[in-house]
Design a binder for these strands. Structure first.
Length: 1146
RNA sequence: AGUCCUGUAGCUCAGUUGGUUAGAGCACUACACUGAUAAUGUAGGGGUCCGCAGUUCAAAUCUGCGCAGGACUACCA
């Protein structure tokens, strides 16, 4: 054990980072933090897997610091916190990266490059930046087990996924269905929402739009719409995609929206008609100018369209009415052409009646299904159901359709017009933007038939394929789904038991999302991912879901017996052997699993569904898959699940947070996590998103190299609540370094300097509290309050508040007050009880702060802890991260003491302010201050802090005046908090009355203890609690006041005081000279001072005082000092002397 | 478009259950202090608490409607 506390020249946090990291590595500190907690209760934390195919950014430091803080804190609290790193390795970003690197597209896979080679490229590419990730993780001080991470492409991981999928399959939660999804005909592929959200995908385009006229079928139910008219009635509906009109099978109205029935004319043909549209949109179609005109004033071809409103109806009245097919090209196979209610219908634009084409709109499909409306479908040559548009983006050619179907359902003449036409010119290589579009041709045809009410160009925002840059279609595609809607209520219920930070993300963003939950589209038609373990017979009557490798092996055996397969790729696999080697004998990825043909119960061939599963399933399954559950860890699983804590960015709400929650609910009927912090984004200093493209991304490596990770972490955590976005500013990191770490370091340096001089090693027993001076008891009281507060903040997952509390304590209380006031106690004098108490107190503060702050600033706090402990050996633990969290002692917390020290600070601050006003330096002692006492309890409080204040402000005496009558000018103020609830409305008048009170009234009030005022002829009796009386001024004195405290200062300088002031000036000059001469703090000197009439007296009077303060063994007043060996000093205005000091060798 | 977050000094942020002079740090200006010294103190300037309306004796704080920025989700006539 060392006897001296280490001394530093300056604070280099970057170096501390490196030193401590080295130390952790050499001593396996992280491992020890787990080993020493062996057998203790465990705290379960899940690490969300990042994808290592990109470089980590500064925002990762944020998320990981949060995770680390909680885990380190829980370790201090004695929990064993196992945390396993993981890598997300599947999915589109990886594939896109590989395709870019190899210069291929999806279409080339299987032709230019084999699926096998492609997947191999993905497998290596995805771990490209593993080293950088590990490096950052280590440098930023994030403790997580990187030795044995879980990897989602690992066969064991996939096996668990399959097991989970089989659970879902057996619970009947997996189904294959079709939905409307974004689809790029130009690329021939469906697009994920991720792809659709690439920047620049949504573009403004100008399209031809049409308002179609859907003739109301006249029957009993619709008779009210035909009442009193001599022409046909039409629902009118707007579309930006007229090419979907032939696929219309329904119209949607809002049940509460008001509609009007209007007699008018077809604007293009002049034929009389009645149209029905939303009332609030009326003037979008009819010009107000013509409101007064008679109907008959219109003639075909006129611009001024006349109209007359006949009746009003709400949407609910229209529900169920039938209409005639607008464009009868193909007949639907089931019920169609009915008005239905759509919850999404608005009157923002269009007509308030929405055209529904279930094959080309997600909403359309949904409401049509609910209402039992058929989509308009065709049958192709194979008899398969198809939308009217094929996958290249054109209307099906007749020869590609089933003959029978054409005969029965297709109006050949009408359909032939459009067969083979592309719905967007962009899909047809022979067309340009200038050519007439299918939309235009359809609109023209409708005009001719008097079935269009308005046709115009319209600019709107439309998604485009990011790869081909051509517009996408919403198109029905087959997919496998998880029927999450079935467990929606349970998920909502379970969500309520989760502690979300912030709460709003859980209740709002996540809660609302659950309420509107749709089924989870699991299918991805890609190559690099977890294959769906489902095998289906050709006629789709038989289906098999595989839940383990062993099961698959057995099924292949059966298939071989049936003669469908000749070899078993799993032949070498040994069931029950969970070793890496055993699981590396095969590959569960495509294309290997694609080639497996299984056999059904009835002996049919079963083929694998080619889909992969959504990568989010991979990550959502990590609680189980990282443990290879249930193939391993089945018995102790309750110790591994659920997580007590997770943390990720708020962007994961519908991603990882959702998939974790969904899988846990469906497979285990429980939550996957109990507490969660979802942090906001890290933006640049101006509030813009960071991106490599804009060049405003902050590089975490160079930042840590320059500042060390502690200030970075501290800044990120304390600057804003984690869930708020952080405007990242390097200036802020620098400020934290200087203000917090600089101050803490200074405080340590101060302690170290004197403790080493005095040989303090904390070898003495703790000085009893009663023997410690006021100021020590005060800082210890605050320290214990701090422990309590910090613990509460950490427990509540609010590290920001914890950090801020620590910071305030260190900067304001410990450094700016305690150390400042106590400096003299450490310097010189005997090694007394008081001095020991001072050392012990300061030591305790530093030691405790190092533990409290260690979760946030793991490096420097460990250094500080080690430096302190290296001498005292108070802890057997070698690192701050292995100790136990301090317990606060309520006995030591003394709120009265804290209160009066607060008064002391105020009095000091006011007194220093007064000195400034009259320009008297603090070095000049003054005789007294006077404090008026308004409340008897103040006296003992002030007595207790008297000495602290006096020495701080350099005043000899503190006097109290209790009988203040006539001396003080007082001011009275109403106490709104007590008066308000009592008197309510007349509060303002009461305040005015109180304001009118004069000095005599106030004195009388104080004497009587009550006072009556009259407001509105009502007597109102005031008690002392109802008002606040403060002293404002003492005539003839220099006075300052703040709240109840008033300080008056005697600024007369007597000759005696002046002499003492001069002595102090000398001390100051001598100390400066010592320092300039590079003397050690403990060096003794010989001192010579040149005589001057103004100072001689003072020097002689205070010779001894000057001597002890400057360690001068001799002081001489001399006639003359040679200028070259003495230093000129100005003691006061116009008084100059010379001093000379010489080191005395002992 | 929906949901959520944010809006307080030039900048970054506090501001408890509504209570009457709205705070801190940084930056700026001036002055001090200093054997903790690449620190520190005191004072000053700087505010439409995003806007409007409401509730209330009293609103930065509660309610409603907007505006601006951000995030996520969706994209629909």
């Amino acid at each position: 054990m060392s006897t001296k506390f280490p001394e530093y020249k300056n604070l280099d946090l970057s170096q501390v980072n490196k030193d401590i990291l080295k130390d952790w590595n050499e001593n396996n500190t992280f491992e020890k933090s787990l080993e020493t907690r062996e057998g203790n209760p465990s705290f379960v934390f899940y690490e969300g897997p990042p994808s290592a195919n990109g470089m980590p950014g500064i925002h990762h430091v944020m998320a990981r610091a949060l995770k680390d803080i909680v885990c380190r804190y829980k370790t201090l609290k004695g929990f064993q916190v196992n945390r396993k790193a993981g890598w997300d390795t599947h999915g589109l970003p990886v594939e896109l990266g590989v395709e870019k690197e190899l210069g291929i597209t999806k279409e080339d896979i299987g032709t230019k490059i084999s699926v096998d080679d492609y997947n191999l490229a993905c497998r290596t590419n995805v771990m490209k930046y593993t080293r950088e990730w590990e490096d950052l993780t280590s440098k930023m001080g994030y403790w997580v087990n990187m030795e044995e991470p879980y990897i989602t492409y690992d066969n064991r991981y996939i096996e668990t996924l399959w097991w989970l999928l089989k659970q879902l399959f057996e619970k009947d939660l997996l189904y294959k269905g079709y939905t409307i999804q974004p689809f790029s005909p130009a690329a021939g592929t469906g697009l994920s929402t991720h792809e659709l959200n690439q920047p620049g995908c949504y573009k403004d385009v100008k399209d031809t739009t049409a308002v179609g006229m859907f003739k109301v079928a006249r029957d009993e139910k619709s008779e009210f719409l035909y009442e009193g008219i001599d022409c046909d009635a039409y629902f009118i509906a707007w579309t930006t995609t007229p090419w979907t009109l032939p696929s219309n099978t329904a119209l949607a109205v809002g049940s509460k929206i008001e509609y009007v029935r209007v007699r008018t004319f077809n604007p293009y043909t002049g034929i009389p008609c009645v149209v029905i549209l939303a009332k609030s949109l009326f003037y979008n179609f009819f010009d107000k100018k013509y409101e007064g005109l008679e109907l008959g004033e219109y003639e075909a071809g006129d611009k001024r369209l006349t109209y007359k409103t006949l009746s009003e109806h709400v949407g609910a009245d229209l529900e169920g009415l039938r209409y005639e097919q607008l464009m009868p090209l193909v007949k639907p196979e089931g019920d169609a052409f009915r008005v239905i209610i759509g919850d999404f219908v608005t009157t923002e634009d269009g007509t308030g009646i929405v055209h529904i084409a279930p094959t080309f709109g997600a909403d359309d499909d949904r409401v049509a299904k609910v209402a039992g409306i058929s989509p308009l479908i065709l049958r192709d040559k194979e008899g398969k159901m198809q939308p009217m548009v094929d996958r290249t983006g054109k209307f099906f050619k007749i020869e590609d359709l089933s003959e029978e179907f054409v005969k029965e359902f297709v109006n050949l003449e009408a359909y032939s017009e459009y067969a083979g036409r592309f719905v967007k010119n962009a899909y047809d290589p022979t067309l340009t933007d200038d050519d007439a579009t299918l939309d235009i041709d359809i609109a023209v045809a409708l005009k001719k038939e008097s079935l269009a009410f308005k046709v115009e160009k319209h600019v709107h925002n439309y998604p485009h394929c990011w790869r081909t840059d051509k517009p996408i279609l919403y198109y029905p595609l087959d997919s496998w789904f998880i029927e999450t809607t079935k467990v929606r209520d349970r998920m909502i219920e379970l969500n309520k038991t989760i502690n979300w930070k912030p709460k709003s993300t859980g209740e709002g963003r996540f809660g609302k999302w659950l309420e509107n939950l749709q089924d989870w589209n699991l299918s991805r038609s890609r190559y690099w991912g977890t294959p769906l373990p489902i095998w289906v017979s050709e006629d789709r009557s038989e289906i098999k879901c595989i839940g383990s490798v062993a099961e698959l092996k057995a099924e292949i055996e059966k298939s071989m017996t049936a003669g469908f397969m000749t070899e078993n790729i799993l032949a070498d696999y040994i069931e029950g052997d969970n070793s890496k080697e055993n699981y590396e004998k095969f590959d569960l990825h495509r294309p290997y699993v694609d080639g497996l043909i299984l056999v059904s119960e009835t002996g049919q061939k079963l083929f694998r569904e080619l889909d992969l599963i959504d990568v989010w399933f991979d990550s959502g399954a990590m609680p189980y898959a990282q443990q290879h559950y249930p193939f391993e860890n089945k018995e102790n699983f309750d110790k591994l699940f659920p997580a007590q804590f997770i943390a990720e960015g708020v962007d994961q709400t519908r991603g990882w947070f959702f998939t974790l929650h969904a899988i846990a609910t469906m497979c285990f009927d429980g939550v996957a996590f109990e507490n969660i912090i979802s942090n906001g984004l890290v933006l640049d200093a101006k509030g813009n998103k960071m991106s490599k493209r804009l060049g405003n991304a902050v590089d975490p490596f160079s930042t840590i190299e320059k500042y060390g990770s502690d200030p970075l972490r501290w800044y990120m955590i304390t600057n804003a609540q984690p869930w708020d976005n952080l405007k990242f500013d390097l200036g802020g990191v620098e400020e934290v370094r200087r203000k917090f770490f600089g101050t803490l370091y200074n405080t340590y340096s101060f302690f170290q300097l004197y403790a080493n001089v005095d040989g303090f090693t904390y070898s003495e027993a703790d000085v009893a509290m009663e023997q410690r001076p006021e100021i020590d008891r005060w800082i210890l009281s605050l320290l214990n309050s701090l422990i309590k507060e910090v613990e509460e903040c950490y427990e509540a997952y609010e590290p920001t508040r914890a950090g801020r509390a620590i910071q305030d304590f260190v900067n304001e209380n410990l450094s700016n007050w305690y150390v400042r006031l106590c400096r003299k106690r450490y310097w010189g004098g005997d090694y007394s009880i008081d001095k020991i108490s001072a050392y012990q107190t300061l030591y305790r503060c530093l030691e405790t702060v190092s533990v409290l702050a260690s979760p946030i600033a793991p490096f420097y706090m460990d250094q500080l802890f080690k430096d302190l402990n290296s001498v005292t050996g108070r802890f057997t633990e070698e690192s701050v991260h292995l100790v136990n969290f301090p317990k606060y002692d309520p006995e030591v917390i003394d709120s009265e003491l804290e209160e009066r020290m607060d008064m002391a600070q105020k009095i000091s601050s006011m007194s220093l302010g007064l000195r400034r006003k009259v320009k008297i330096r603090v070095r000049q002692p003054l005789s007294k201050i006077i404090i008026p006492i308004l409340d008897d309890s103040m006296v003992p409080q002030l007595e207790a802090i008297k000495n602290i204040v006096l020495s701080e402000i350099n005043v000899k005496e503190m006097e109290f005046i209790t009988d203040t009558t006539g001396v003080l000018v007082k001011n009275i103020k109403p106490n709104f908090k007590t008066l308000g609830p009592k008197y309510g409305k007349i509060m303002k008048q009461i305040a005015a009355e109180i304001g009118k009170m004069n000095q005599e009234d106030i004195v009388a009030f104080e004497k009587e203890g009550s006072y009556t005022i009259v407001v509105n002829n009502e007597n109102i009796s005031l008690t002392p609690e109802d008002v606040e009386i403060v002293s404002e001024d003492i005539p003839g004195w220099l006075v300052a006041n703040e709240g109840k405290l008033t300080v008056a200062m005697d600024v007369n300088i007597t000759d005696e005081l002046r002499k003492e002031g001069i002595a102090r000036e000398f001390i100051n000059r001598i100390q400066n000279l010592r320092k300039d001469s590079d003397f050690e703090v403990t060096d003794k000197i010989k001192l010579q001072i040149m005589m001057h009439d103004s100072i001689n007296d003072a020097v002689l009077t205070h010779k001894e005082y000057i001597g002890t303060q400057t360690l001068a063994v001799s002081i001489e007043l001399v006639e003359k000092l040679a200028e070259n060996e003495a230093k000129a000093v100005e003691i006061e205005q116009g008084v100059e002397s010379f001093i000379k000091i010489e080191k005395v060798s002992e």
